[in-house]
Design a protein around this nucleic acid. Structure first.
Length: 707
RNA sequence: GGGCGCGUAGCUCAGUUGGCUAGAGCACCUCGUUUACACCGAGGGGGUCGCCCGUUCGAGUCGGGCCGCGCCCACCA
């Protein structure tokens, strides 16, 4: 319904998004925290776990010697060796860890070690997450090199010794002051002076030189390739930087979210595993604040105390009547604009929400939650979320989370997961690779129906390689529908009240089955199957049924043409509606030739109605089956006649003097029901029969001169 | 490393409770024709259903094990 579109920057979406956030805040489902956060150093913003991707990057493994005291029994005699790919974080080292069961480091655990170059004393502790077979089995914990560091830091209550700034450069640190003690402050300052202000890469290069000079680097760095986490749009690896951010509670709902995932009907079912993997792998709550310019702002301000300090602990929420608000221009209730930024005044929250924080409310926005209670009650929860598999962990996940938190139920009953359109070489299209095929020229060359036809052939969940051949097929089908409709409907004689001819009943009976299959396929979200069934039967219909009934259709006697006239109307009406979802334009066109209104508003074909129409007047046992066999046999004989003509290199209208059909008695008994149509369609003078085990046809063509 | 999916004609893919002499379209070859359709029609060739075991009267279909491809996830030592 194109009258109900919205944009995520529109007032409606902003209002609903801000209102939902305030609701979460009120219920303590959202909170702010100064904590280690995934951070992109180029965009200088927090990013969420869902926005990360792994990229393989070359690096080097450095073996580094830490000093140890009074542990002469330890192998290496007075030294502890660790391996690291990030030696630039040695000044941020807060502990060394070994696995509790590792015999090599048992003596060392519980003692203290000294960092190289800086002489900081760090405890040597045990933790089960340490992998014994990596490196020396001894690992350094820094604040923060990776998410595991965060885990260790949290679980072992380690101090923070942070060296990395939001711009990705090493910040100044106060060597010698509390937290930055050193056995040799002079040396620490001197060493760090070589690193301060440098980027991570520059610092890494320099510290390797320093370690090498001091003899604390053991051996040469060994080149390795390792998976590094990047913000999906970023150029440099994400870092972990401590900052104040807003979070939505997620982890504590893990089990309920998994239950929601099981409640949802997935198409195809195996896609549920993607959500489960994701939910089970979550390492923290969802960070929703971003330090960017564009986005929906947080509807919050903070008081400023008399000393001019922002009091983050007491956020001032916007009033419902103010929504949507922009705290950088709007003013909180009870304050004057002149108080902005002043002691005793207020400051607006400078951050905006993650785009998914608004997109996760799609059903609520479309249903106008909190705006139009009647509409919302009518449409929520919705039937289906259609989307591709790559954003299960973002769009699908976050939508379920928000609906769970706000509405206490699933946002929709079904998830229809599509695949990607791949380039002709089956690679994912991407701007950076330059292999993107835009659809405009396809629409121009093949038509919108053909492009849509091709897209509909991609089965749910399956990636589809771009294939111009398939568009030709779609175009052919569209043209065929145009031509068949023209033949079937133009100058059609008056229709009868009922299907009096057995072949017409048999046709509608088959059509009923096809309609039933298309319907159940659609109900299963298997649109590709619905199309395939309708399509293959339609081609059979054109090749055989339309040819078989030509004689009766053009017969001047209205009693003869009445039944086929009805069958043609019914069948074309059904085909036009069955194809309408796939070939919307051509179907609308052929529908307009003889029907009122739009085919897209017409009722879907009713298989039961068709079956009723196809039932024989005398419902004796086996009549239905006999008529089905008659139609099949008629088509089989016609096929053999055509084959004979084709192999004799004669035209299809070449007359046939005699056809001998051999088949079982049972089948021959029903041949008569369709023999007249077969004769007309094959230009056959005489059909004879002979009983046999297997079906075969002998064809006698008239002499060529007879043409 | 864990999980999921896929491997059927040269290509894109059907094959739903095991019964197939394995199908369709494209491409290829032959022929025909213009009274719905040259954006056409009729016909033909082409496959040890990735490999190996097993269950079964019978396996493309079920079970196990390999091989290959793809995707998702994962702890950057």
């Amino acid at each position: 319904d194109w009258s109900m579109t919205y944009t995520t920057i529109g007032k409606l979406a902003q209002r609903i998004s801000q209102r939902s956030f305030l609701g979460l805040l009120e219920r303590d489902a959202a909170y702010q925290l100064e904590a280690p956060t995934l951070w992109d150093v180029d965009f200088q913003t927090a990013v969420a776990q869902a926005e990360l991707e792994d990229r393989d990057r070359p690096g080097a493994m450095h073996r580094v010697r830490f000093g140890v005291n009074g542990t002469p029994t330890h192998p290496g005699d007075g030294q502890a060796l660790i391996e690291t790919t990030r030696p630039e974080l040695i000044p941020a080292c807060v502990a060394l860890l070994a696995h509790p069961d590792d015999p090599r480091h048992r003596e060392l655990v519980g003692s203290e070690a000294r960092t190289p170059l800086f002489g900081t004393r760090v405890p040597v502790l045990a933790h089960p997450l340490v992998e014994q077979d990596k490196g020396t089995g001894l690992v350094m914990v820094c604040t923060f090199g990776d998410l595991t560091d965060v885990t260790w830091w949290r679980e072992l209550s380690l101090p923070v010794r942070s060296v990395l700034g939001p711009d990705g450069r090493l910040v100044a640190v106060p060597w010698g002051s509390p937290g930055w003690e050193s056995e040799s402050v002079e040396r620490a300052r001197a060493s760090y002076g070589e690193l301060e202000g440098r980027t991570v890469n520059q610092a890494r290069k320099r510290i390797v030189e320093l370690l090498s000079e001091s003899g604390e680097l053991i051996g040469e760095p060994q080149p390795v390739t390792r998976a590094v986490k990047f913000f999906e749009k970023g150029e440099r690896p994400v870092e972990i930087v401590t900052s104040r951010q807003w979070f939505i509670r997620t982890i504590e709902h893990r089990e309920q979210l998994l239950a929601r995932g099981r409640e949802l009907k997935w198409h195809p079912p195996y896609m549920r595993a993607r959500l489960e993997d994701w939910v089970k792998g979550l390492t923290g709550d969802w960070c929703v604040s971003r330090q960017r310019f564009f986005g929906v702002p947080f509807p919050l301000w903070y008081p400023i105390d008399e000393a001019g300090k922002i009091v983050y602990e007491r956020p001032l929420a916007a009033l419902e009547s103010q929504l949507p608000v922009d705290p950088s221009t709007d003013v909180p209730d009870g304050y004057e604009p002149s108080q902005r930024g002043q002691p005793g005044g207020f400051a607006g929250d400078p951050d905006v929400m993650d785009t998914w924080a608004t997109s996760s409310l799609t059903p609520q926005i479309a249903g106008q939650a909190g705006e139009d209670a009647e509409l919302f009650a009518k449409v929520f929860p919705m039937d289906v979320r259609p989307q591709a598999h790559d954003i299960i962990r973002t769009w699908l996940f976050s939508t379920i989370l928000r609906s769970h938190l706000d509405e206490g139920e699933l946002p929709w009953s079904n998830a229809a997961i599509s695949g990607w359109v791949l380039d002709p070489d089956r690679k994912k299209m991407s701007k950076s690779k330059g292999n993107v095929v835009t659809p405009m020229h396809l629409l121009e060359e093949y038509g919108a129906d053909a492009v849509r036809y091709w897209a509909a052939n991609g089965r749910p969940g399956t990636d589809t390689a771009f294939d111009a051949q398939q568009m030709k097929v779609g175009r052919r089908l569209a043209v065929k529908l145009l031509n068949a409709s023209k033949f079937a409907l133009a100058d059609l004689p008056p229709q009868g009240q009922a299907l009096t001819h057995p072949l017409d009943r048999a046709l509608i009976a088959r059509l009923s089955k096809v309609a039933a299959e298309a319907t159940s396929s659609f109900e299963d979200y298997d649109y590709a199957r619905a199309l395939e069934r309708a399509e293959s039967f339609f081609w059979w219909y054109c090749d055989f049924y339309l040819e078989l009934v030509k004689g009766r259709r053009y017969d001047p006697d209205p009693d003869v043409s009445a039944s086929v006239s009805l069958a043609l109307r019914v069948s074309m009406s059904v085909f036009q509606r069955l194809f309408a979802p796939f070939l919307p334009f051509v179907c609308e066109e052929v529908w307009s030739w003889w029907q009122e209104g739009s085919v897209h508003r017409a009722p879907w074909p009713d298989a039961d109605e068709l079956a009723a129409m196809a039932s024989p007047p005398s419902p004796a046992a086996g009549v239905l089956e006999r008529e089905q066999t008659a139609l099949e046999l008629a088509a089989d004989v016609l096929r053999e006649v055509r084959k004979a003509k084709s192999q004799a290199r004669r035209p299809m209208r070449a007359p046939v003097t005699r056809v001998l059909v051999r088949d079982t008695a049972a089948r021959l008994a029903v041949l008569g029901l369709g023999a007249g149509d077969v004769r007309d369609a094959g230009s056959i003078e005489r059909i004879e029969t002979e009983e046999a085990e297997e079906f075969s046809v002998e064809v006698e063509l008239a002499a060529e001169a007879a043409e």
